[in-house]
Nucleic acid binder design. Structure first.
Length: 473
RNA sequence: GCGCCCAUCGUCUAGCGGUCUAGGACGUCGCCCUUUCACGGCGAAAACAGGGGUUCGAGUCCCCUUGGGCGCGCCA
């Protein structure tokens, strides 16, 4: 076995790439990067009924958006069915597996009886040592593994530690279905072996599977990869993640205006820690990531923390990059906001100019776009309730005082407008806020916005003055 | 039901027998900064699930209880 670390992410394409899957992929990716190895991608599409082309695309797109690149070609498990069958037959010839002719009904009865007797539900091995000549006519058999009946199966898990099962609690699992297709259990073992996977990093829900897979490895005489079963992500209520909270596809997070750097940082800290460090650049997380520091208890998904991180990374982001990120989701966001699916050049320029003030205040790209509404709102502006409150008689009166001074400015800029408004404040004895708030309301239709003078500068002289006059008309 | 896993502030977590009157972050609440909102700064409230052991000493080790989770398919 080679020294090079090979990890793999192996989703089944029966739905979108959900947040737990994304984190599993991230951990695999980080571990491979950390050790100068490779992360392979395998699509587990042996369930022909439920696997879809759309799901495959969603997974690939999701990984790409998150910046999690895989090495080599994508492996499609279904395409390897012949190899899986070959291994099952190899096991059969070696006496490590056998044909089982038990019917669905027999299996059901076994389960029922086990339940009644309070025993673990397991196949009783009735065909284990029976001669195939006793096979009922017309029944297509499955191939089962002849698993050890006593002793124990032990997994040395990189995060869970040593986990032990009594072999008597594990039954003879099906390797090959009666239609000749491999089961997940067989396919995973064969593929991981053939792909030279050294580290299997996956969700905790597979821990029990690891025991059964270990038995297959042993029967085959193959080296067992290192296992690392990471705790699952739960919803805010501690129960299973449902669509209501976090069990959305990563595309949904994209649509909600989260950016990849934030999601990566949020995800890496779910179940993994590195002292007190909270913020990790991609390079930092690669350098610091290790399996030993992965916790064993499940984590709850917390939107508030994700938002905080998203705000952090947005403030750090390049202005032009943020615009591009918004443009990428504009087809979804634009229409309902009276915008098209792309920005017209003039609005794009304004957005770029206002970006420093905008990104400081938003937690998501959606919030950012909404807070920029004053840039694309049409005159006369619709005022929200608070803005209306600011433009009562007093407010309008102050507006009337300031307006002529602003009209007198020829070289319109943040500096000149600020000087003018401050001048009025000094002369009248009014506080700056008493003048600024009515101006803000008239210019943006809201009580909050980026810095007032930046707003006026980006809007320009004509538009600014027109909006002020609209409110005095 | 059986098997396996887990258990520190509301949440993510630090803690790997004494340095813990338990640290950080998000969130919450104050104060400061301030043209608003944010950002930033300062500060506060907030946790070792319960019970037994082991030990000179336990958040840290063991057992039990309780509470959660995952698994128990010819699904993956």
């Amino acid at each position: 076995m080679s020294d090079t670390v090979v990890t793999r992410f192996a989703p089944s394409p029966t739905g979108f790439l959900h947040i737990g899957g994304a984190r599993t992929a991230l951990f695999n990716w980080l571990y491979a990067r950390r050790h100068g190895g490779k992360m392979l991608l395998r699509i587990e599409d042996t369930d022909r009924e439920r696997s879809t082309e759309a799901a495959i695309k969603a997974i690939l797109d999701g990984l790409s958006w998150l910046g999690l690149t895989w090495d080599g070609d994508v492996v499609y498990q279904y395409a390897r069915a012949a190899r899986h069958r070959e291994v099952a037959e190899q096991l059969l010839r070696a006496g490590k597996a056998y044909y089982c002719y038990a019917s669905q009904q027999e299996l059901e009865e076994m389960r029922e009886q086990a339940r009644r007797e309070g025993r673990p539900m397991r196949y009783d091995g009735r065909w284990r040592d029976r001669d195939p000549s006793e096979a009922p006519a017309g029944v297509k058999p499955v191939i089962r593994l002849k698993a050890p009946t006593d002793g124990e199966t032990v997994i040395e898990d990189e995060v869970q530690g040593r986990v032990t099962w009594q072999n008597k609690d594990l039954d003879d699992l099906v390797l090959l279905r009666s239609d000749g297709t491999p089961t997940y259990m067989l396919a995973v073992v064969v593929d991981d072996h053939d792909m030279a996977v050294t580290h299997v990093i996956r969700g905790d829900d597979h821990l029990t599977n690891a025991a059964r897979q270990k038995q297959i490895y042993d029967a085959l005489g193959w080296d067992v990869p290192r296992f690392a079963h990471i705790p699952l992500i739960h919803g805010p209520d501690g129960a299973k993640l449902s669509k209501r909270h976090g069990a959305l596809g990563v595309d949904a997070y994209r649509s909600m205006g989260y950016i990849p750097a934030a999601l990566r940082n949020y995800l890496v800290r779910l179940g993994w820690s590195h002292g007190d460090q909270e913020i990790f650049s991609t390079e930092e997380m690669i350098a610091a990531f290790d399996l030993a520091s992965v916790g064993r208890s499940p984590a709850r998904f917390d939107f508030a923390k994700l938002e905080n991180l998203n705000g952090h990374y947005m403030r750090l982001a390049d202005d032009e990059d943020l615009i591009r990120a918004i443009e990428a989701i504009l087809p979804e966001l634009g229409p309902s906001r009276g915008l098209g699916t792309t920005f017209d050049p003039s609005l794009r320029r304004k957005l770029l100019a206002a970006m420093p003030g905008l990104k400081e205040r938003a937690k998501t790209l959606v919030e950012l776009l909404d807070s920029a509404s004053y840039l694309y709102a049409r005159r006369p502006l619709a005022l929200d309730e608070k803005a209306k409150g600011l433009l009562g008689d007093d407010g309008r009166g102050r507006l009337a005082i300031v307006l002529p001074r602003l009209e007198a400015i020829a070289d319109w800029s943040a500096e000149t407008t600020e000087a003018a408004v401050r001048g009025v404040a000094e002369e009248t004895g009014l506080k700056l806020g008493q003048l600024a708030q009515p101006l803000r309301a008239a210019l943006t239709g809201r009580a909050t916005s980026p810095g007032l003078f930046d707003v006026m500068a980006v809007l320009g002289r004509d538009e600014s003055l027109s909006r002020l006059r609209d409110q005095l008309a």
